[in-house]
Simulated assay, not measured.
Amino acid sequence: MKIVEKTFDIVSETGRLIIKPLEKSDYESWLDGFESRKPSQHRHDEGKRDMSNCTEEWFRDLVDKHQELAISDTAFVFGLFRKTDGVHIGMVDFSTLVRDNFQWGSIGYSIHNHQWRNGYGQEAVKEALEIGHKHLNYHRIEAHINVDNEASFQLAERVGMEYECTRKGFIYEFGDWTDNLVYFKNSI
């Protein structure tokens, strides 16, 4: 059974976005996306950060690392780019949780905060779920969302993910074990 396509060949388009693995030629757009961020808007928004260590050489190594993770079926990272001008607006990623009889993965998503309220998150995550089911062959895709991240769980609901449960003490972050809402979408 073929598990995944070569992810560096997967490119998907929506009405306004191109979703694809990062390429070494994406450096300037990627860097500008992060450097254009506003200060953090809430605790789940990393906001503006120091990008001085993110040189072009560092970025080339990052792209290579993403390809290694994809080849090993560990993780799949996709950049989100606006079609009209190539602006990098965020990222979507998948992690393989279990293959075998489960074909189970998780999804993460992030839109640069200066690009919020344009509908990019919904457009990108809806298409990313299609990529996860059709190209990465996940039957079940979960989003693990902090219980106080209302924008994220509202987005999960808008793209057709269903709330399943709250996992107590599920992920170690912010210096503690945090509870997470679990949203899922199965392939049809």
Rank of each mutant, 00 (worst) to 15 (best):
K2R: 15
K6F: 06
K6W: 04
I10L: 03
I10W: 00
I10Y: 01
V11Q: 09
V11A: 01
S12K: 15
G15Y: 08
R16E: 10
L17Y: 05
I18W: 03
I19C: 01
K20S: 13
K20M: 02
K24C: 13
S25M: 12
D26M: 10
D26T: 09
Y27S: 08
S29H: 06
S29M: 08
S29K: 07
W30M: 09
S36T: 11
R37Y: 04
P39H: 08
P39L: 13
H44F: 15
D45Q: 05
E46K: 12
G47K: 04
K48M: 14
D50I: 09
D50W: 08
M51Q: 15
S52I: 06
T55D: 04
E57I: 09
R60Y: 09
R60N: 14
L62V: 06
V63E: 01
D64G: 11
D64N: 15
K65T: 15
H66D: 13
Q67L: 13
E68Y: 01
L69E: 13
A70N: 03
I71Y: 03
I71L: 08
S72P: 04
A75W: 01
V77S: 02
V77I: 15
F78T: 04
F81N: 07
F81Y: 13
F81G: 07
R82I: 13
T84R: 12
D85R: 10
V87R: 08
V87L: 11
H88W: 05
H88E: 06
H88K: 03
H88Q: 08
V92M: 03
F94Y: 15
S95K: 11
T96L: 03
L97D: 10
V98S: 07
V98I: 12
R99F: 12
F102A: 10
F102E: 11
G108H: 01
G108R: 03
Y109Q: 06
Y109H: 08
I111P: 01
G119Q: 09
G121T: 13
E123G: 05
V125L: 15
K126G: 11
K126W: 07
K134W: 00
K134Q: 14
H135T: 06
L136A: 00
L136N: 00
N137Q: 07
Y138Q: 02
R140M: 05
E142G: 02
H144P: 00
H144Y: 11
I145R: 00
V147L: 10
S152T: 00
S152K: 01
Q154I: 10
Q154R: 15
Q154T: 13
G160A: 14
M161H: 03
M161D: 02
E162D: 12
C165V: 14
R167P: 00
R167V: 13
R167E: 12
G169F: 09
F170C: 05
F170M: 04
I171S: 00
Y172D: 01
E173P: 02
G175Y: 01
W177V: 08
W177S: 03
T178V: 11
T178A: 12
N180G: 06
N180L: 13
V182N: 01
F184N: 02
F184P: 01
S187C: 13
S187P: 05
I188D: 14
